[in-house]
Simulated scan of single mutants.
Amino acid sequence: MTRDGFRAEEIDTSRPHPARIYDYLLGGKDNYEVDRQAAERLASVAPEARIGVQANRAFMRRAVRHVVGSGVRQILDIGTGLPTSPNVHEIARETAPDVRVAYVDNDPIVKTHADALLGDSSATSIVLADLRDPRAVLDHPDVRRVIDFDEPVALLLVAILHFLSEADEPERVVATLRDALPAGSFLVLSHATGDFADRSGAQAVYNDATATMSLRNRAEVERFFDGFDLVEPGLAQVPFWRPDAPPPPRSAEIGFYGGVARKNG
Score class of each variant (00 low, 15 high):
E151M: 12
S121F: 06
V153H: 06
R145V: 08
L157A: 04
A167C: 08
D142S: 13
R132C: 02
T124L: 07
R135P: 00
L161G: 03
T124D: 08
A167R: 15
L117A: 11
L117K: 03
L118V: 06
A116Y: 04
L131G: 03
E166W: 14
I160H: 03
L164Q: 04
S165H: 13
D133S: 15
D150I: 04
E151H: 12
L161H: 03
V143Y: 03
T124H: 07
D168I: 07
L155T: 02
V127N: 02
H162V: 02
L164N: 00
A116K: 14
R144F: 10
D139Q: 13
A136L: 09
V146N: 12
S125E: 01
R132Y: 00
R145H: 11
S121G: 14
L155Y: 02
L161V: 13
I126D: 03
D120L: 09
F163Y: 06
E171R: 14
F163K: 04
E171Q: 13
A136C: 07
R144I: 06
R144Y: 08
R172D: 14
A116H: 10
L155V: 01
I126F: 01
D150C: 07
V158I: 15
E169K: 12
A136P: 04
A167F: 07
R172E: 15
A114Q: 01
A116G: 15
F149I: 01
S122M: 03
A159M: 03
T124W: 05
E171F: 12
R172K: 14
D142F: 10
V173T: 15
L156Y: 00
A123N: 04
L164W: 02
V153T: 02
I126L: 11
R145E: 09
A136F: 09
I126C: 03
S125I: 05
L118H: 00
I147T: 10
A129E: 06
V173L: 11
S125N: 00
P152R: 11
D139S: 12
D133L: 11
P141K: 10
P134K: 12
G119A: 01
L156Q: 05
D168H: 11
I160S: 04
D168A: 14
D148I: 09
L138C: 10
R144N: 11
D139K: 07
S122N: 12
R132K: 13
I126W: 04
P170F: 04
A167P: 04
R145M: 07
L164M: 11
V158H: 11
V153D: 07
E151F: 05
T124E: 05
L118M: 00
L138D: 12
R172H: 14
R135A: 15
H162E: 10
A129S: 12
D148F: 13
